[in-house]
Design a protein around this nucleic acid. Sequence first.
DNA 1: TCTGGGGTCCTAGGACCC
DNA 2: TCTGGGGTCCTAGGACCC
Length: 294
Amino acid sequence: MPISRAWKLCPGAVYLPPNYELYTKVSNEIMCILRKHAGKFEQWGIDEAFLDVTPKVRDYAEAEGVAQQIKDEIYERQKLTCSIGIGPNKLVAKIASDHRKPNGLTIVREQEVEAFLAPLPVRKLLWVGRKTEQKLATMGIKTIGDLAHYDPAILAEGFGVAGTQFYLMSHGIDKSEVEERSQTKSVSRDITFEEDTSNFEFVLSILDELSTEIIKDIQAYGYYFRTITFKVRYENFETHTRSKTLPVITNSLQDLRKTARELMQYYLRQGRKIRLIGLRVSNLASVKEQKTLF
DNA sequence: TCTGGGGTCCTAGGACCC
DNA sequence: TCTGGGGTCCTAGGACCC
């Protein structure tokens, strides 16, 4: 629920600001616990992860034991509960983990997969978001079972490579590996103004702040960047981006500010009210790589 | 109900090179 | 002046994840 709506419904509630530093710290501590129990480990956002426990257990019963151990350890150390799903692949495990919340533990064995998936809405599948759900609905496909009985050729026609993927997923097939996320690909900051604004002096000062924050992160990680992307969202939610790739890598605040201002310049003429601006740097290189790139 | 902020990946078109 | 085919990089937009 957007905070604006909550405020209208319940003005007397206590509203606390988020504390991402704390969340990140706790997240890191929990990820360390998880990592110990995995063969291969893949963090998925701030509060989820995939663990390949194949090398550690002989069967599903032993996997359940590991899951229980993990839950106990997280509760002991952080006083937090979590939900775990166990399955033959990432797709099934993820859907299983969402199945019972909070504090759930769901096991889906190979032979149970299709029956488990069939009645669920397609939206539960990984990579099926709002848009895809709508498009599938126009084709009469609502549940994963519907999808499993559909002609894969027509799915491939309508959705390209993803269509084939959807069909395979509907049968519980997912060959993707649990893999360590290698390097960060981009660093960004977005800000939505409290009120839509066309005061460009103000927007410019915020842009400079975003630049400063990004550079702080970039330098802390020891990264360099080449590409800078500016994003604007107008009051009607129309969103545009403009990017520029520099000829050489950099980590300097001046470079970022200057380029960000140039990119924003393009949107200033139009005199429209702005709801959000964002800034992103990508095409990252770390300190070690940097020497070879020069 | 008008919708926050940090990310990743994919696609399509165009520039440029050989 | 018009024209091939293969490849890479850049840009803009969109869908998806948490």
